[in-house]
Structures are given as C-alpha cells and as structure tokens.
Simulated assay, not measured.
Amino acid sequence: MSAAPHSSRPRSTTPRGRIDKQQAVLTAAFTVFARLGYAQARVDEIAAEAKVAKATVYNHFGDKETLFREVVRALSETALTANLAAVEQLVNDSDDLPANLREVGLQLARCYCLEESRALRRLVSAEAPQFPDLLDVMDEVSHRVTQALTDRLARLSLAGRLLIDDPELAAAQFTALLTGSVDTRSRLATRSVPDAELRAITEAAVATFLKAFGK
C-alpha cells in the first residue's frame, strides 16, 4: 500500500487558539489606544476589552510599547491589502476607462475614509513625537500603493489609453486629488464622509485627472 501523499501546504506551528487570542488582543488594543491614547491606555483595560487575562497580553506581546507598535503595523497591513485590491481593478482593456478610474478612485476613497483608517491616522499623528518611526510604517503603505498605481498607469500609457510622461507623478497627483478633498470634508479624519460625498469627490478627481492625462 502506498503512503498517503504529503500536502504541499506547510503545517502551522501556531495553535489556532493562540492566533485567535493574539488577534483579539490586537483588536482590543486598537480600540483602547484610539479611545485613550498611548499614555492613558492600561494593559488591564486592553485585557478586559479582549476578554483575556492580563498575563495573556504580556505573553503575546511582552509590553505595552511592543503591543502599540504591533497594532499600528497590523492595521497598516490591513489598509495596504485593501488599497492594493482597489488598484488592481484598474485594467488596460476596460471598455470605459473613465468609469474604471471612477470605480478605483471610489474604492480608494472609501478605504481612506474607513473608521479604522481615520482612527489610525489620528492615533499615529498624536503619538508621533514618542513613536516617530511609526510614521515610516504609514509612509511605506502610501509608497507601496503609489507604486502599484504607478505600474497600472504606466501600462495604460503604453497601451495608448492615457498620455503620461511620468506615471509616478501622475499616480501621486491622482491620489492627492482624492485624499486632499477627503481630508477637507472629514476635517482631518475627525468625521465620517457620506458615500454620496465620496462619489462626488471621485467624479471631480477623475474629471481633473483626465483633463491632464486623457486622450
């Protein structure tokens, strides 16, 4: 009798329960840090929010500072994934490029306006004097999204769909058209922006972008 074939998927060495508790602590910590700020947040409050023992928080993250950094990194990764998924929808062979740009722009604006994204920007900005390196974490997300958008715009230019000499600059300008207006409407991330307003912002951003780079 032949042996059963080995699975090509690597087996996890981390128990499922440990991963679940770690995620629960990260989620709870973000809630508490966003509400109280780093200095006022206490580990016992985070443990209570996560419904775990205080020792569990320390077992997973060691101390409050490490936990805070991991919270910012985890939320930044989540934001990056969502933004990259939006950019991937910009394709060369769309029958309606303006509509495609509007859809991508709207998804990016929605990502930027999520409560978690707004709370993360407020939190990192407030704690920047003590944790300046976390600004680099946020900047890396912006950089990777801009690079992904640069690649998509370069392909559209090569395909003759847009007239762009500097795709990276065009990507930065498209992003600025979206986020600049959103920052104004959201009062620097302190209020939510209704979806109807996001659609209007996106319409205006795409119209301006196509006046500069459309054929």
Rank of each mutant, 00 (worst) to 15 (best):
G105S: 08
A109V: 11
R121I: 00
S125E: 06
V124H: 02
L123G: 06
L123Q: 01
D136A: 15
F131G: 05
Q130A: 15
V124W: 01
A109N: 08
S117G: 13
F131A: 08
R122V: 05
L101F: 09
L120N: 04
Y112P: 05
N100P: 07
R122L: 08
R102T: 06
C113L: 10
Y112I: 10
L97A: 12
L123A: 13
R118I: 01
E116N: 10
L108G: 00
A109K: 01
V124S: 03
D136E: 15
A119S: 15
L114Q: 05
E127Q: 02
E115S: 00
A128E: 08
E116C: 03
V104K: 05
F131I: 08
R121K: 04
P132F: 14
L134K: 01
L106R: 01
R110T: 04
P132T: 15
D136S: 15
L123M: 14
A126N: 02
V104L: 13
L135T: 08
E127I: 03
S125W: 01
V104M: 14
L135A: 11
R110M: 10
C111Q: 09
A99S: 13
P132S: 15
L108M: 10
E103C: 10
L101I: 07
G105T: 07
R118G: 03
Q130R: 14
A119I: 04
L120S: 04
Q107R: 12
A109P: 06
R118Y: 01
P132A: 13
Y112M: 11
L108W: 06
S117M: 11
G105M: 08
D136Y: 15
A109R: 02
P98I: 09
R121Q: 04
S125K: 04
L108T: 06
E115N: 00
S125N: 10
A119Q: 12
